[in-house]
């Protein structure tokens, strides 16, 4: 089974540890295993970047950690506590410590409420008194760069994309989380606004002592913000490791293909390597063996019969591939 195994986990030091997570979505045409035995961990203060093509299970993984969707199988440990079975009351308390910024910021904001109330939403749920909520809301608003009365009374539709994203970040920060899961926080934004938001997340991370899971499809963005990176394909983990190592010397052929597909600003180069052919197979009937084998330039017979497990390829770098790539540098 392509991309299973827990050899890359770092034990009790991790703030968040996910083992063999499975999330099924049953449907009329069959069951989609959106996340299929995915394992990863994040140490306190680290940023983990998650990349992969649309539909590979990034959002589902993030939502499962917060137990927003039914977890079919697997274990999730947060701050030393196994939470995959925790009841809803316990999860409500834990969600003050684990916050998520959702993929579509504008849609995730209540359209009829002014910004200052949206930001204080989490505190209201937690039962803080009104004056405390107002003060906390004003503080985080200024920390995300939306100072003053002007923004406090605005409605979400009056905000630009970048401003809406700041409000979503402020709302998450207001409850004082330890873990922040950001789902594609800059994908819809212009480079100039994207740079503002990325710098903001870095600043807030230091200020609030945050541990971050950062989901994105832009590899350049993930590179600048992550300590470790996890590459996913069709519900599986392909590669996990130090982002500088993974980018410099990808071990999994899919990671290589992703990097080779990033357009370069060098007018003579275009791309770093050849294109990846074909389409992602249907998640209803994923290939057996290694799920990437139908598009992998290195696939051999073994790849169809035996699912590769996560293995340490080089120190701090793990890949699930029978024939990992040698280092290039």
């Amino acid at each position: 089974m392509a991309g299973s195994g827990t050899a890359h986990l770092r034990g009790d030091k991790a703030l968040l540890s996910v083992e063999d997570l499975v999330v099924d979505y049953p449907g009329k045409a069959g069951t989609v295993q959106a996340v299929s035995k995915v394992s990863f961990d994040v140490l306190p203060g680290e940023t983990l970047g998650i990349v992969g093509e649309s539909g590979c299970g990034k959002t589902t993984t993030g939502r499962a950690v917060l137990r927003l969707d039914r977890v079919t199988a697997g274990r999730i440990r947060f701050a030393g506590e196994w939470i995959e079975q925790a009841d809803e009351r316990r999860m409500r308390a834990l969600r003050r410590q684990m916050q998520m910024i959702f993929q579509d910021p504008v849609a995730s904001l209540n359209p009829r409420r002014p910004v200052k109330d949206i930001v204080a939403e989490g505190l209201a749920i937690a039962g803080s008194p009104a004056d405390e909520r107002a003060a906390a809301s004003a503080t985080v608003m200024s920390q995300v760069g939306l100072d003053g009365e002007r923004f406090a009374d605005m409605l979400p539709r009056q905000l630009s994309g970048g401003q809406a994203q700041r409000v979503a970040i402020a709302r998450a920060l207001a409850v004082g989380p330890r873990l922040l899961i950001c789902d594609e926080p800059v994908s819809a934004l212009d480079v100039s606004v994207q740079a503002q938001i990325l710098n903001l997340i870095e600043d807030l991370k230091a200020q609030y002592d945050l541990t971050v899971v950062f989901i994105a499809h832009d590899l350049g963005v993930v590179r600048t913000i992550s300590d470790n990176v996890m590459v996913m394909y069709l519900g599986k983990v392909c590669e996990f490791g130090d982002s500088a190592e993974v980018y410099a010397n990808p071990a999994h052929p899919y990671t290589r293909a992703l990097l080779d597909s990033v357009p370069l600003t060098d007018p003579d180069k275009g791309f770093a390597g050849p294109a990846l052919e074909g389409d992602v197979p249907s998640p209803l009937s994923p290939p057996h063996g290694c799920r990437f084998r139908t598009r992998c330039p290195l696939a051999q017979d073994r790849c169809a019969t035996e699912e590769p497990q996560m293995n340490e390829v080089r120190p701090g770098q793990h890949a699930a591939c029978h024939f990992p790539l040698p280092p290039t540098t």
Binding site: Q194, L198, N199, R223, Y247, T265
Partner: peptide, 22 residues
């Protein structure tokens, strides 16, 4: 614009150069 674009070799955890305003 070029400076604000995170390249594949951007040094991590270093601030991107911003274009202020809009």
């Amino acid at each position: 614009l070029l400076a604000a674009t995170p390249a594949l070799d951007h040094k991590r955890h270093t601030p991107l150069r911003l274009i202020p305003g809009s």
